[in-house]
């Protein structure tokens, strides 16, 4: 473990908690893409299958359980409890356009052709693009509540911090995983225009307005 990965995990945890609290407190999931949340739940489910078979540390197990529980709780809030506030008309990204390439790529570019490894690879590639329906929805509605933009900033920062973690591990531990690195860079790059708007607007107290 290193400070970059720890900060990354904390940022990731923060994002998930911010989202849960926002929906629970405002009793509304307006502006939130249920599709992205479905993709995140799929990501954690296929990545943490080794939750019971491969014990890494208490921290690792704890965080996996929290991520799984929080992502399914968020889906429950969006599609069940506060379903009336789910903005279906703006959450229209065709996720099959994500699932197909991710599935093909995970079958072609992986470390080992075993079910567990393919599912892990699938989850890595899926996570890289899972935020697209949410970013698409924000661009479609033309704006995002500030709490939603804080959620996106924390979520985007987490994988950016993981990149620093991978640089650290390459030099200090001679460890690297090209699949995780490639997907992590893509994932972080997808947030770039949002990061620019967040830093130039939201941090100055303005609303996040995207050119529709």
């Amino acid at each position: 473990m290193n400070i970059f990965r720890l900060l990354g995990d904390v940022s990731h945890l923060l994002a998930i908690i911010i989202l849960l609290l926002k929906i629970w407190k405002t009793r509304s999931c307006a502006g939130i893409s249920g599709k992205s949340q479905l993709l995140f739940a799929l990501t954690y489910t296929t990545r943490y299958l080794d939750l019971v078979t491969n014990f890494v540390s208490v921290y690792n197990t704890f965080m996996k359980v929290v991520f799984l529980a929080a992502s399914y709780a968020t889906i429950w809030l969006i599609y069940m409890k506060f379903r009336a506030t789910y903005d279906q008309n703006h959450d229209t990204f065709r996720i099959e356009f994500l699932l197909l390439p991710v599935t093909i790529l995970s079958l072609v570019a992986n470390h080992e052709f075993t079910l567990i490894e393919i599912l892990w690879t699938w989850s890595i590639y899926l996570e890289a693009v899972a935020i697209l329906p949410q970013l698409f929805m924000v661009s479609k509605t033309g704006e995002a509540e500030s709490i939603t933009s804080h959620y996106l900033f924390a979520l985007g920062s987490y994988r950016g911090l993981y990149i620093l973690n991978w640089i650290y591990r390459y030099y200090m531990e001679s460890y690297y995983d090209l699949i995780a690195i490639f997907a992590g860079i893509l994932q972080t790059v997808l947030y770039c225009d949002f990061f620019y708007l967040y830093i130039t607007k939201v941090l100055r107290g303005q609303r996040l307005q995207l050119p529709a």
Partner: peptide
Amino acid sequence: EAAEAPKDEL
């Protein structure tokens, strides 16, 4: 190829 370290990252 990647080092065969166990998958210790989240």
